[in-house]
């Protein structure tokens, strides 16, 4: 208590004094904000411009007439298949999240609750695969899935999530290890089997961490381009990133910047939504994973 008062007292005179620094600081931040947000503005404005207007120089700040039709065009134009690709991305992301949450928590539970011969070594192995860059192993993985006949399907993008992700296993294990052993002893006395201890005791307690895992698996899967480029052939099977990249390069003779910006906006919406709905988990996840 006394410490609090002292600090408050110490602060007061300071706050009065160097007001200039805060004015300058806020001004600097305002400038940064304008710089950061102006490309976003450009994106939204372009998405609403007609093909004619989008190429005008200097660019118009506010579209002369709002071409909402651009958004519709994405779904109506049968050559783009945007709706289909959006669905594919959702399918891949949802299954990836489900798979990762399920398998990573199972594995993390195993690592946090049991000692066995080799468990230490195996955990070191988990940690070491955290650094394993995907490009370093993509060729054999690609050959493996191709020989299994899974080419041009969403399965090679989904299946690897069902064996757990090293990072998520690590995160969850750290959390599970904080749960008191007494909790489990009590559960065992009640006659719960090991699987029940995992399912009905541990998982419910881990809600927030699981949410973090889910959010970041979703984002990662949503943005992934390299694996879809390797595995997906036909436009109907594309996920959004590869579909959008293809849209710029080939389906049109003139780069449809307005449609591309509209597509980019729609593609970003799920991530923005998650940020709005679950801001705390979201920020926590960034801090924990450093993920972009």
């Amino acid at each position: 208590m006394s410490e609090l008062t002292t600090s408050a007292a110490a602060c007061k005179p300071r706050r009065r004094g160097p007001k200039l620094s805060s004015v300058l600081g806020v001004a600097a931040l305002l400038i940064v904000t304008v710089i950061m947000l102006s490309p976003l503005w450009f994106m939204v404005a372009t998405a609403l411009k007609t093909t004619k207007e989008m190429l005008r120089f200097p660019p118009t700040v506010i579209p002369e007439q709002f071409a909402w039709g651009n958004f519709k065009e994405l779904f109506v134009n049968s050559e783009i298949k945007f709706g289909r690709q959006y669905m594919n991305s959702v399918i891949v992301a949802v299954f990836s999240v489900f798979g990762t949450v399920l398998s990573s928590s199972l594995v993390a539970f195993g690592f946090s609750r049991y000692r066995a011969k080799g468990s230490q070594v195996l955990f070191m192995l988990v940690l070491s695969t955290m650094m394993l860059p995907y490009p370093a192993i993509m060729i054999p993985q690609f050959l493996l899935f191709t020989k299994l006949g899974l080419h041009d399907s969403l399965l090679p993008l989904i299946l690897p999530n069902f064996v757990g992700s090293a990072y998520m296993i690590f995160l969850l294990r750290q959390f599970f290890s904080t749960l008191p052993a007494e909790l489990y002893d009590a559960g065992r006395i009640d006659g719960s089997g090991e699987f029940r201890l995992y399912w009905s005791l541990t998982l419910p307690l881990a809600g927030p961490v699981l949410a973090t895992v889910a959010i970041f698996t979703f984002i990662w899967s949503w943005n992934d381009l390299l694996a879809p480029v390797l595995y997906l052939d036909s436009q109907e099977n594309f996920t959004l990133p590869i579909g959008m990249a293809a849209m710029m390069s080939s389906k049109f003779r003139l780069a449809p910047w307005n449609l591309l910006m509209a597509a980019s906006i729609l593609a970003s919406i799920p991530i923005i939504l998650m940020f709005v709905v679950a801001q705390r988990r979201f920020v926590e996840g960034i801090v924990l994973t450093g993920m972009k």
């Binding site: 950061m36 947000l37 490309p39 976003l40 450009f42 994106m43 984002i219 949503w222 943005n223 992934d224 381009l225 959004l240 990133p241 590869i242 959008m244 990249a245 710029m248 591309l260 910006m261 597509a263 980019s264 906006i265 593609a267 970003s268 991530i271 923005i272 940020f275 972009k292």
Partner: peptide
């Protein structure tokens, strides 16, 4: 802006 990532950011 960090939420506009991946291909969307590249295109933008």
């Amino acid at each position: 802006p960090s939420m506009i990532s991946g291909v969307s950011m590249s295109l933008l």
